[in-house]
């Protein structure tokens, strides 16, 4: 029972941290909003001067960073379970590189045609979704042919290399303007889509995907024992693998399309949670990873906004700066746990 109360406390701490960071995210920005106004507006009883900024910009932005982080984190956990590899994350299947390639094609072709770099979010979302879907269907076709997860993993990594090679060719031949526009996109941002109607589609897709992962908890746990054991526990391994890939692809596609290729959250968060709980049981890891993903992404978004160097930092740089040391620390601590 002691163990369960520990998980429970972890959950409570994460929830409190999410609420605090969420409010801080809404308050921080080019205009600093007093925290009382933030709370009042969230609770829905304020007609103050900041009302419009909060509801139109800050709240959607905070919500999208929370949901995107949560989605990437659970994807990372699924990939690490499916491929039985602690280095797997949503980008490992090449799905986000598919999005990146299509965004690159959109940006560079539009400049080459002389109509100026298309930075319209709607076109970007369409391109990014198309890119990830192309990779997804390719992977599903491969998955039907190959039996082992390792072969699938290697196919995913190779797809990633292939697309990044194509992207660098585009970058090399592209104009200065197009390169700048493209680099800006790769930096990632949670504020890109808040003004568009597509925002709700993003939120719905992500939340539906995250909820779907909860329905896979038994499958993920069984896969820890390997495919043969999982099969003997009544799991249809092949079908489960396809479902896991489709959910990961949809979530990754949604996040990449709306926020850009956000690095590191998917890889780092499951390690952090595993370190926190000292458990591999997906019954605890799935909910806690979803919470921790939201929490850490909010923290990164907040740091990005704090103007440490006098200006806002790109979110992608912050997630890597925060994520990498935490993963290294968790691995060091875990190896001592391993020997015990």
């Amino acid at each position: 029972m002691n163990k369960y109360s520990r998980y429970f406390i972890c959950g409570i701490i994460l929830l409190i941290a999410i609420i605090v960071l969420f409010c801080a995210n809404v308050a921080m920005g080019s205009v600093h909003i007093p925290i009382t106004d933030v709370i009042n507006t969230i609770l829905g009883n304020n007609e103050g001067i900041y009302d419009v900024i909060i509801t139109e910009r800050r709240l959607p932005e905070a919500v999208s960073s929370m949901v995107a982080g949560s989605a990437l984190a659970v994807c990372g956990l699924m990939m690490q379970t499916l491929f039985r590899n602690p280095l797997a994350d949503p980008s490992i299947l090449g799905i986000s590189s598919g999005s990146t390639l299509f965004i690159a094609i959109l940006t560079f072709c539009s400049t080459a045609l002389g109509i100026g770099a298309i930075m319209n979010p709607i076109w970007q979302i369409i391109a990014a979704t198309a890119g990830s879907m192309v990779v997804l269907f390719f992977l599903l076709a491969v998955s039907r042919r190959v039996v082992s997860n390792t072969s699938l993993l290697i196919t995913g990594i190779m797809t990633g290399y292939l697309t990044s090679a194509l992207v660098s060719i585009l970058q090399y031949s592209g104009s200065k303007d197009a390169n700048f526009a493209f680099v800006m996109w790769t930096q990632g941002s949670f504020s890109r889509v808040v003004s568009s109607d597509l925002f709700f589609i993003f939120i719905i897709v992500c939340i539906a995907g995250i909820i779907a992962v909860f329905f896979l908890i038994r499958t993920l746990n069984a896969l820890l024992l390997g495919e043969n054991y999982a099969r003997n526990m009544g799991i249809n391994v092949h079908r489960s693998r396809n479902i896991i890939i489709i959910i990961t692809a949809l979530l990754t596609a949604a996040v990449t399309a709306y926020c850009g290729p956000i690095a590191f959250i998917g890889l780092a968060v499951p390690h952090i949670v595993r370190y926190m709980t000292r458990s591999a049981d997906r019954r605890t890891l799935v909910p806690l990873t979803a919470l921790a993903g939201a929490c850490i992404t909010l923290l990164c978004a907040l740091i990005a906004k704090m103007e440490v160097f006098g200006y806002m930092l790109p979110i992608n740089a912050v997630t890597s700066l925060i994520g990498a040391p935490i993963v290294i620390a968790a691995i060091f601590k875990n190896s001592s746990f391993n020997e015990r």
């Binding site: 163990k3 039985r84 909860f214 329905f215 896979l216 908890i217 038994r218 499958t219 746990n221 069984a222 820890l224 024992l225 390997g226 043969n228 054991y229 526990m233 009544g234 799991i235 595993r274 000292r278 458990s279 591999a280 049981d281 997906r282 019954r283 391993n338």
Partner: peptide, 30 residues
Amino acid sequence: LTEIISEINYLTVRSVVEMGRYPYCNCFAS
């Protein structure tokens, strides 16, 4: 089976034995 599984190192003995009940329980493994 013969295979040695390092993935379950962080699981407790109890949760491994509980996996035996998976054919009988829902998708949340409760």
